[in-house]
Write a protein that binds this DNA or RNA. Structure first.
Length: 256
DNA sequence: ATGTCAGGCGTAGCCTGA
């Protein structure tokens, strides 16, 4: 089973990229983030023509997440299940072949110390509580995929001096991710790239891709039963090198 | 910090968010 996650930075701007990528990469599941469209504007027909069902949680202009799957999806959930009134479309989950797949777009966080930053930390805590309420980490197969907007280690950022104190790599967000993962989730990508320096996102500004100044912030975190079946994990850098790319490249994980 | 994008509004070019 091949599962991928990709922040496409607008499904309308990247529609043809997604279609071409599905045809070439043939994943079983593709999690998308930053659709930037209401559900009514999602290109369901083109995706269906590629052979995929789509579960979509859209929002005009901002955020928006989806799960595309070749196999039937069930139990689609589009919220954190708590009492907070939150209009931001950042999370969707669905069951495919007994595995619960999440497509998550974690808040960016703006600037350290800002309201957006506090929202980011709180959102990650809320996600942990949602997992606690829904799953048994020892028994259930769960894959949390998406743009986490957190680079876990210093070798997950191209220029540590530039990024280390930012909302994407500071201690507070790394600690929040550790606390989230302590539910019973493992980063299944990193063991295949033990020396680091493999990025999934490069800022458009300052020619980040051309200068090797990227970040690994797109992740697949799995419960043990699924994690132990991981047989490969790559970033499709070629997609980032195409014309008019998203600032993120697809991250692809394969399970036995 | 920013040699960049994308969408909204509204129909040019500024604003927001990332």
């Amino acid at each position: 089973m091949k599962v991928a996650t990709w922040n496409v930075n607008s499904i309308r701007a990247r529609r043809q990229h997604v279609v071409d990528w599905l045809d070439a990469a043939q994943p079983d599941v593709l999690c998308l983030q930053e659709l930037k469209v209401a559900e009514s504007d999602f290109p369901y027909e083109e995706i269906k023509d590629c052979g995929y069902e789509a579960a979509v949680f859209g929002q005009k202009t901002y955020n928006g997440v989806a799960i595309l799957s070749r196999r039937p999806m069930s139990n689609v959930v589009t919220d954190l299940g708590d009492s907070e009134d939150d209009p931001q479309a950042r999370l969707i989950s669905a069951e495919v072949d007994g595995v619960t797949i999440f497509s998550a777009y974690f808040p960016n966080g703006g600037e350290v110390g800002s309201d957006k930053f506090e929202y980011k930390l709180r959102w990650i805590r809320r996600l942990r509580e949602a997992l606690d309420g829904r799953f048994d980490p020892d028994a259930d197969r769960v894959a949390l995929c998406g743009d986490f907007n957190v680079a876990p280690f210093d070798d997950d950022i191209g220029r540590p001096t530039e990024w280390r104190s930012s909302v994407l790599a500071c201690d507070a967000v790394r600690d929040a991710l550790i606390e989230l993962a302590s539910f019973g989730l493992r980063d299944v990508f990193r063991p295949f790239h033990p020396t680091g320096g493999v990025f999934s996102s490069w800022d458009y500004r300052g020619s980040g891709f051309e200068r090797g100044n990227g970040l690994r912030i797109d992740h697949v975190y799995c419960t043990a039963k699924l994690a132990e079946r991981t047989i490969g994990a790559i970033v499709d850098r070629e997609e980032r090198a195409r014309n008019s790319p998203s600032d993120h490249a697809p991250v692809v994980v394969e399970f036995a």
